[in-house]
Deep mutational scan, measured.
Amino acid sequence: SDPSEDRAPESARVGNIPSSTSALKVPQLKVAESAQGPAAAHTTDTAGYNAMEESVSREKPELTASTERVNKRMSMVVSGLTPEEFMLVYKFARKHHITLTNLITEETTHVVMKTDAEFVCERTLKYFLGIAGGKWVVSYFWVTQSIKERKMLNEHDFEVRGDVVNGRNHQGPKRARESQDRKIFRGLEICCYGPFTNMPTDQLEWMVQLCGASVVKELSSFTLGTGVHPIVVVQPDAWTEDNGFHAIGQMCEAPVVTREWVLDSVALYQCQELDTYLIPQIPHSHY
């Protein structure tokens, strides 16, 4: 159930021909089969995070001529859309010479989310990475209204306002976009420790780096000194050995919190207090 199309920051360009055919990675995205229709094609874990990302398996898109002007500035990904909605975005992107990729990268400028009429969405990996990267996180209605009015409308009017977990109007995407000089995790050293489900560890690490944190791979690698705040992030329900995560405190002095601390902080683009996310640790033995 991992969102495989989000696994690594590679891009698939639509609308320009790469210098070599080997560089072309066409979105071959799968549809989750469901008797209840597209709305039930998501699996949500206890964290309220949509693990099964969206989309559609299609034939290789038709490439435009390399001489045609390509908008190098805009690059989009989509999240939560049905196959039909994805194809509408594809046509919109081609019309406006926008790069459409299946994986979010540093070059991505827009994340197009499936939302309700009030621009509230589910939480997906692309949603988190879009906010963390200060990108435009907009409703699919931006595409449909632009098509209806036959011009590209202003993104401000379609920015995602909230999500089904953290609140319907928290304005996290807007706050992140306007606060890239004040990253929420700066001054923190974060170790993403142990197993994680539904989200590859490297993507979680990239997320906290985008928010200004330094990533530490091992508990023994924390910088011990003033001005640096170490934090260990774990996902308790992913551990097979009972309560192993309670013993992390015996290996390092850092506070240990659940992954929800990261996800909530990123969604709201406000660093949350650790208290409600802390995992009790077995104290050091004193002999």
Rank of each mutant, 00 (worst) to 15 (best):
S1R: 10
D2L: 08
D2W: 02
D2G: 01
P3L: 15
P3W: 13
P3S: 10
S4T: 10
E5R: 13
D6S: 08
D6P: 04
R7Q: 09
R7M: 10
R7V: 03
A8S: 06
A8E: 10
A8W: 11
A8C: 05
P9Y: 05
A12V: 10
V14S: 08
V14R: 14
G15F: 14
N16G: 10
P18V: 03
S20L: 06
S20I: 06
S22T: 02
S22G: 11
L24V: 13
K25G: 07
K25R: 14
K25Y: 11
V26R: 09
P27L: 06
Q28F: 08
L29F: 13
L29R: 10
A32I: 14
E33A: 08
E33V: 11
S34I: 11
S34E: 14
Q36V: 12
Q36L: 03
G37L: 11
G37H: 04
G37V: 07
A39P: 12
H42E: 04
T43R: 03
D45V: 07
D45L: 15
D45R: 10
D45F: 09
Y49D: 03
Y49P: 12
Y49G: 12
Y49E: 07
N50S: 06
S57Q: 10
R58A: 09
E59L: 09
K60T: 07
T64V: 15
T64A: 07
S66P: 08
R69P: 08
V70A: 13
V70L: 08
R73N: 06
V77L: 02
V78T: 08
S79Y: 03
S79A: 01
G80M: 07
L81G: 04
P83Y: 07
P83W: 03
F86P: 02
F86S: 05
M87A: 02
L88S: 02
Y90H: 10
F92Y: 13
F92L: 12
F92T: 04
A93M: 09
H97E: 09
H97V: 10
I98D: 02
I98L: 13
I98H: 05
T99Q: 12
L100T: 07
L100D: 00
T101D: 08
T101S: 14
L103N: 05
L103S: 08
I104S: 06
E106D: 09
E106V: 06
E106R: 05
E107L: 12
E107S: 05
E107Q: 13
T108F: 02
V111G: 00
M113L: 05
M113G: 00
K114T: 03
A117V: 07
E122R: 03
E122G: 02
R123M: 02
T124M: 00
L125R: 02
L125S: 04
L125I: 03
Y127Q: 00
L129E: 02
G130T: 00
G130A: 12
A132I: 01
A132Y: 00
G134Y: 03
G134F: 04
K135L: 09
V137D: 00
V137T: 02
V137H: 01
V138I: 09
S139R: 00
F141L: 05
F141Y: 10
V143T: 03
Q145G: 01
Q145C: 03
K148F: 04
K148P: 02
K148N: 08
K148A: 14
K151R: 12
M152G: 01
L153G: 02
L153I: 04
L153P: 02
N154V: 09
E155S: 10
E159C: 12
V160Q: 00
V160T: 01
V160S: 00
R161S: 10
D163V: 01
V164Q: 11
N166K: 09
N166I: 12
G167A: 02
R168L: 11
N169L: 05
H170A: 02
Q171S: 08
Q171I: 06
Q171A: 02
P173D: 00
K174N: 04
A176H: 04
R177A: 01
R177L: 01
E178V: 04
E178P: 01
E178N: 05
E178T: 06
D181C: 11
D181R: 12
D181T: 15
F185I: 00
R186Q: 09
G187K: 14
L188P: 00
E189G: 05
C191Q: 03
C192G: 03
C192Y: 02
C192P: 00
Y193E: 07
F196R: 10
F196G: 07
T197V: 15
N198S: 10
M199L: 08
M199Q: 04
P200T: 14
L204A: 04
W206S: 09
M207H: 03
L210Y: 07
A213R: 03
V215R: 10
T223I: 06
G227M: 06
V228M: 05
H229L: 13
V232R: 03
V234W: 05
Q235L: 04
W239T: 14
E241T: 07
I248Q: 13
M251V: 14
C252R: 14
E253T: 14
A254T: 15
P255G: 00
P255R: 08
P255S: 14
V257P: 00
R259P: 04
E260A: 13
W261V: 04
V262S: 01
L263G: 01
S265L: 02
V266G: 01
A267R: 03
A267E: 02
L268W: 13
Q272P: 07
E273V: 05
D275P: 12
L278A: 13
P283G: 03
H284Q: 11
S285E: 13
S285R: 11
S285L: 13
Y287G: 12
